[in-house]
């Protein structure tokens, strides 16, 4: 039977966030968690394979305890079980450590897996690095940024658009793909599915020790990159502020900048009044 693993990350629902009128920034502390859209596509691709060729799906996530929600959702959608990797020590992992953690957990919990599916990227960090690094960690062939995937014998065939090329690629299993949001529409949790997902106990939780991680290679401790400083890119620019009635604002704009705008578009925008 085909053994599939889908890596799912819980991300903040940023698009739904209100902005703070005082600072012009998003109020991230109000964020609710959701399944990362590309991970949803990866799960959808796995479910389609399961529908046509059979197989079983393990959903894995690394995150705080509340990330279990996305595993329940995955089970409600048709995954067979969930694996939650949660440990305070895992916090602050960069992509290299994340892929290391996921790889060791996959080897431990899903020996003999055939296909690993990831999202192409996450909506909160959008590095698109975890999938390719997971391929390295597991030492299996991998293809990123895939739009369509189909099984043929012991191999998979994939299509993607990469730097202006439409590519069709093939690889033997076991292998790993990262899936874009391009061709996989969101699925909605069927009625009753949610109930089942919350009552059945198909979710296992591992901490760093259970995964068998080297304490030096976990979380922020194992990460090569460090955040030095965070700043607002707009601090301190001087500009002209125009307020008032729209018509008057537009008049002022042209009075002051008709040369500039006219120059850019190659037209004379001076009215008789202000031309010499």
């Amino acid at each position: 039977m085909l053994k599939m693993v889908v890596c799912i990350k819980q991300v903040p629902m940023v698009s739904e966030l209100p902005w703070d009128p005082a600072t012009g920034t998003l109020q991230r502390d109000l964020a609710e968690g959701m399944m990362n859209p590309a991970c949803r596509s990866a799960l959808d691709a796995a479910l389609r394979i399961k529908e046509t060729a059979g197989g079983e799906i393990t959903a894995i996530t690394m995150g705080p305890p509340m990330a279990e929600e996305v595993l329940r959702e995955a089970i409600a959608l048709g995954a067979d079980r969930g694996l939650l990797l949660t440990d305070r020590k895992m916090a602050g992992a960069d992509t290299s450590v994340t892929s290391h953690t996921l790889a060791r957990a996959i080897e431990k919990a899903c020996p003999g897996f055939d296909l690993v599916l990831c999202g192409f990227s996450t909506s909160d960090s959008e590095t698109a690095q975890v999938g390719p690094q997971l391929a390295e960690e597991l030492d299996i062939p991998g293809v990123a940024c895939v739009d369509e995937i189909e099984l043929s014998g012991g191999a998979v065939r994939m299509r993607r658009i990469s730097d202006h090329f439409l590519e069709t690629l093939e690889m033997d299993l076991p292998g790993i793909v990262t899936v874009t949001t391009g061709h996989h529409a969101a699925r909605y949790v069927p009625l009753g599915g949610l109930q089942a997902a919350f009552t059945a106990a198909q979710i296992v939780s591992f901490d760093a020790a259970a995964v068998g991680l080297d304490p030096e290679w976990v979380g922020s401790k194992g990460s090569a990159t460090k955040i030095r400083n965070v700043y607002s890119p707009t601090a301190g620019k001087k500009n002209i502020v125009l307020t008032g009635a729209p018509k008057r604002i537009v008049e002022q704009l042209f009075e002051r900048f008709d040369d500039k705008i006219g120059g850019a578009i190659g037209k004379d925008l001076k009215t008789d009044k202000n031309s010499k």
């Binding site: 009128p21 601090a235 500009n239 502020v241 307020t243």
Partner: peptide, 27 residues
């Protein structure tokens, strides 16, 4: 919103309804 980041990085920041300014500009 005069405090939006886009306004901070603009050379001219117009505090008004976007659609109204667009229409006035067209006229």
């Amino acid at each position: 919103n005069p405090n939006a980041a886009m306004m901070k990085r603009a050379d001219v920041a117009i505090v008004a309804d976007a659609s109204q300014i667009c229409n006035s500009l067209i006229q």
